[in-house]
C-alpha cells in the first residue's frame, strides 16, 4: 500500500523538532537544513504549532509548473523529484501554497518529502504519522 505522511493531531505537537532532525539525519547531518518537514509556532508559541510537510496532493500544483519534468506524479498522490533533471528554478516552491517545498541552499534545489516516515518514527506524541493513500 502506498503511504503518505499526515499531520494526525497538531494539538499533540510539543514543538520538539525531532521530526526535523530525523529528516536531516537521513543525509548524515545533525540539524534541519536538509529537512522536508518544518515545525513553527502558529504566531507565538501560546497558539501552538504548525507542521508544514508535503500533503501528497492528488493533483499537485508543483508538478504542473515544473518546466523540466523533474517533478513527476507519484502513484496514489504526491511527487517524486529527479534531481538530475532539476535546474533549481524554484517554481515548484512558489506553487505550493502550503510552503511544503523547502530549499537546499547547498545544491540550490528543492527538498521534497519522500514519505519514508522517518520523521514519524521519532514523533513520540503521535502528532504526525504515515497513513495509507
Amino acid at each position: 500500500m502506498v503511504k503518505k505522511l499526515a499531520v494526525l493531531d497538531v494539538n499533540k505537537c510539543i514543538g520538539c523538532m525531532e521530526c526535523m532532525f530525523a529528516c536531516t539525519r537521513r543525509e548524515g547531518r545533525a540539524g534541519f537544513d536538509k529537512s522536508a518537514i518544518r515545525v513553527r509556532s502558529a504566531g507565538g508559541i501560546e497558539r501552538g504549532f504548525v507542521v508544514v510537510v508535503c500533503r501528497a496532493c492528488e493533483y499537485p500544483p508543483c508538478v504542473k509548473v515544473c518546466p523540466t519534468d523533474a517533478l513527476r506524479l507519484r502513484k496514489g498522490g504526491g511527487v517524486i523529484l529527479n534531481k538530475d533533471k532539476c535546474i533549481g528554478c524554484g517554481f515548484c516552491a512558489q506553487a505550493c501554497i502550503m510552503g511544503a517545498i523547502f530549499w537546499d541552499d547547498e545544491l540550490d534545489k528543492p527538498i521534497v518529502c519522500k514519505y519514508c516516515g522517518d520523521c514519524a518514527d521519532y514523533c513520540v506524541h503521535n502528532a504526525i504519522g504515515l497513513v495509507d493513500v
Partner: peptide, 13 residues
C-alpha cells in the same frame, strides 16, 4: 494547563 511544549530536540515537553 493549556499546552505542553519542549525545548528544541527534546521529546519530553
Amino acid at each position: 494547563l493549556s499546552r505542553r511544549i519542549s525545548c528544541s530536540h527534546c521529546p519530553v515537553g
